[in-house]
Design a protein around this nucleic acid. Structure first.
Lengths: 194, 194, 194, 194
DNA sequence: GATGAATGAGGTTTCATTCAT
DNA sequence: AATGAATGAAACCTCATTCAT
């Protein structure tokens, strides 16, 4: 399993840094290799091509979100509490890793449609977990039954994403985490049963 | 004023079509020129460079949104009704022009960070109008005063954007307009005073 | 018709010189462009890709052989005389253009199987003309009827080719043309009716 | 003497198979190593570099031709009969080993001029034996004294080579050996005294 | 104003070879 | 003797932009 080898992770981490600092279109393979401390050719022992590096970046890092969210789902807490924690987790992961925030919110979105479709496959897993919280909330009466689940998901994810993207675009000048409670309140108010 | 000359609009319209049909990275200047029925060099009589074409696309087309939204603001109706109409307008414009929907939701997002910052300047005008509705609603007691205006704006715009992007990614297979009432209900429920 | 433009021929001629002087694998597109006095990109206005340059070299230059051979065929002379003149023409063209001789006999043969198959299509035209001389000679009784036409063609072309290749490999140190009469005698003796 | 070690032959045989099946330009050292069942690095214990493998392929396999031809020369038979047997041997060896035929007639000819000059050194031994038959034939009056020995050699080898190459290019679809008698007749007719 | 031929910088990927184990 | 992970040089082609006509 290649992704357990240290160099695999070295290269993925290097890619995040290089993309964040130089921008997607200036993130040449040679730069990533240099940052990772390996030769250009070594990259191709661990990745099929450049696109494969970028997908791996997303998979590896998105894994953090999914893994944490999975744990949240397993806890015996109310659906509302799960939404709260999910938002907190989402904000916290990106607030903790400024490079990663730039990469996911701005840079990786410049990738070709092809690459973004693959990235979406990774994202889908995350959104499915979100859906399962929403479904649970509908069933136990915490959330408003009249809601369309798809739209509720759009609202939760769209609000989070827009909030973080704006924060990144403003060069992370203010404290993202301190926005979490208000976003939580806003979204819960939007979906909770009256 | 160059942008009143017929060729200016010809080229902007050609750009929308070429980008929608070929994708952002396959939208070469020569293709746009051909589609517009002018020579490559002619493009540079009307635009400073390629980026300038893309910004103009956004400005020209965004104009539709802003213009309509301005009219809505001028009407003597409740703030809630204004939000309703704004959402309807946003959905309607993009549902009516499939090429434009592809360009704004998918293709232009692949542009460089620089370009997207400039696109955001254009978008800001639209978001300021949205803000003015929200402020009005707070002041006249229609909307929940506890809300952070910035976050409320993220929620409204993020939800709309996420909903439309998902619709475009699904190849516009279902009827977008029929989702408008539910999105309206969802968002109003989220921001209205209790 | 691109191949009537002067730059097309400029580039083809430059390619012959660069390949002859540097060898097939050292004939980079940039070198050919420099020799032709044009920018690298200009090459691609006239040729689809590098392979296309090489095929064109062969087509353009092989054209000399075929054109001359066609004229010989049209003359009202004996079949033996036609063979004589064909050999003379073949030797003369290559003896006159040392660069071309290196390219056709040594360098172009290093090309990939794909390219060589395309080169063979060009060559086939030439061999068909040779066949038509042989057929005529069989029919008018000048050549030995027992001969298999395919093998006779192999003998004529194989002998000529081997003779010239050896001459090129010996750095064209001796006079190729002076070998022509003996090759003619040898081949005619081999195929003439007793 | 390294070339007596089993791995030396293993690698040479692997090279023939890999080149025949993948083509010269797709015959990477790593593929040859894999086919031979050794590590990449092991190749370099037996060969100086990749070119050395290819020269060795030619030397080892050409040995078959030379060895057989040497035996033919030692027989007490007429010079014409020796030519007959030489042709038969040449055809037979390649008809029997389709991989080898592809390698010698098509793939190795794509090698660099340098490599081909070295291959020619190997070939020279074979051509010298051919020359000795021709000289013998001139001296004992079997062959036409007027012939230039060099050109006669070109004719014999060129015809054989052209015939076999055409056969390989036609994917060895017809029976090569059955052409031998006609080629023999053709060449003998070309060189025999009248 | 309009043309379109010409420009030339820049990056991903392959693969022969090495060398620490 | 044998391994195989690591190296790093090298080149084709695209396309935004210019400028002579």
């Amino acid at each position: 399993m290649k992704r357990e080898k240290p160099k695999y992770k070295q290269i993925v981490d290097a890619a995040v840094i290089v993309i964040a600092e130089n921008g997607y279109h200036q993130a040449q393979v040679s730069k990533i290799a240099k940052q990772a401390g390996v030769a250009d050719g070594t990259i191709y022992l661990y990745f099929k091509n450049k696109e494969d590096i970028l997908i791996s970046v997303f998979q590896e890092k998105m894994g953090l979100f999914v893994e944490n969210l999975q744990k949240i789902l397993d806890d015996e807490i109310s659906s509302s509490e799960k939404i709260l924690r999910m938002i907190d987790n989402h904000f916290r992961v990106l607030a903790t890793d400024p490079h990663l925030a730039i990469v996911t919110q701005l840079e990786l979105r410049q990738s070709s449609k092809d690459l973004r479709l693959k990235i979406n496959d990774v994202l889908r897993e995350y959104l499915l977990l979100l859906d399962s919280i929403l479904v649970e909330g509908f069933q136990n009466g915490e959330f408003n039954k009249d809601l369309d689940i798809r739209l509720a998901r759009h609202m939760v994810f769209g609000t989070i994403d827009e909030t973080i993207t704006t924060w990144v675009m403003n060069e992370q000048k203010y404290d993202l985490l301190s926005l979490a409670p208000k976003v939580q309140q806003l979204l819960l108010h939007g979906i909770q049963a009256k």
